[in-house]
């Protein structure tokens, strides 16, 4: 989608980049440039005028000659007068950091793990030669992701079993719409026929996936999917917690409507949870860094989860 407003630095950056492209590949239409750079035609024109209006007024030197009449007709053509500028500057440190970290992140996703184009790119853009290490070798997730990617692109429904966060298994038919990666967790966003609503499904909890040949409905195609993964369910319960700073992320893993304050070196605030059973696992994972203060039923739900985990159903090998 074309962005309408950009700030001075970004416009400067765009002007430098247009110089590079036009001097390399020749004249372009403003509409082509708009499409290529992802800005509106109006912004492209502004950037082109930036290039044109760069005279050295002290020495009466023109840096670029621009054909104004052509620009009015939507064509961008200029030639170098006394300018030494032919390309944009190389990437800044922060640009490299931002792109390299983004590529690091993508490389950590199962389906891109062995992508040769990505590997080459990371050597070019990043200065990192080491690969990101994955905790799990195994390609179940990569295979699931490849099937889901195909289903989303072909706009066909999928059938699967889904294990929800309470461990309950059910059969689902889903119109798949988008694949979201949020840090290490991966989600399918789609219209669930059973719930008649847009839902988020953790990819690792999808079992026995089958891509059907049934096209998804026009209604599903028109759905807007919110950026946030968590839904707003009517049954949500507000739970007051206190966390060590190391566990600050608990406040951004759940919707939180209260202010988080710092008290005696700990963060105190409220999070909104869908089910008490699920709360148990999310608090227990921090092994004591997060504590539920109230309500009492939330406190006991966490205790019960941790107590059960202390006596795992899976017996030790050396048990008599």
């Amino acid at each position: 989608m074309p962005k309408q407003e950009i700030d001075g630095e970004e416009l400067f950056n765009l002007a430098l980049s247009i110089v590079g492209l036009v001097l390399k590949n020749g004249p372009h239409n403003t509409s082509e440039l708009a499409e290529h750079f992802g800005f509106s035609e109006q912004t492209i024109k502004k950037a082109v005028l930036t290039i044109a209006n760069s005279e050295d007024v002290g020495n009466f030197k023109t840096h670029f000659y621009l054909d104004d009449e052509l620009l009015d007709d939507g064509e961008v053509d200029f030639s170098v007068a006394e300018s030494m500028l032919t390309e944009p500057p190389v990437l800044s440190k922060r640009q490299v950091t931002a792109l390299a970290a983004g590529l690091d992140y993508i490389a950590s996703l199962a389906q891109f793990a062995n992508n040769p184009a990505l590997k080459e790119l990371r050597e070019l853009v990043g200065d990192s030669t080491t690969s990101v290490v994955r905790k799990v070798a195994g390609n179940r997730e990569a295979e699931l992701m490849a099937q889901l990617q195909r289903a989303v692109m072909n706009q066909v429904a999928i059938e699967c079993e889904y294990v929800n966060q309470l461990g309950e298994r059910s059969t689902r038919t889903i119109d798949p719409l988008r694949l979201d990666f949020v840090l290490e967790k991966h989600y399918l966003r789609g219209f669930c026929h059973k719930n008649q609503a847009v839902r988020s499904f953790r990819i690792d909890r999808i079992v026995n996936l089958r891509v059907t040949a049934n096209p998804i409905s026009e209604d599903s195609k028109a759905l807007e999917i919110p950026l946030e993964v968590f839904g707003t369910e009517s049954t949500e319960l507000s739970v007051k917690i206190s966390a060590e700073p190391e566990a600050a992320q608990i406040f951004w893993n759940f919707p939180s409507y209260s202010q988080v304050i710092t008290k005696d070196g700990r963060l105190v605030g409220e999070i909104s949870v869908g089910s008490l059973q699920a709360l148990g696992r999310h608090i227990t994972r921090y092994g004591g860094l997060v504590k539920v203060i109230e309500p009492p039923e939330a406190v006991s739900a966490v205790r019960e989860f941790a107590q059960a985990a202390l006596a795992p159903e899976i017996a030790p090998e050396n048990e008599d």
């Binding site: 630095e9 590079g20 750079f37 931002a98």
Partner: peptide
């Protein structure tokens, strides 16, 4: 970082 990544991308698009 989002604007930096975008402006870096713009610059690479000059290629």
């Amino acid at each position: 970082m989002a604007p930096s990544a975008q402006s870096g991308l713009t610059r690479l698009k000059a290629l």
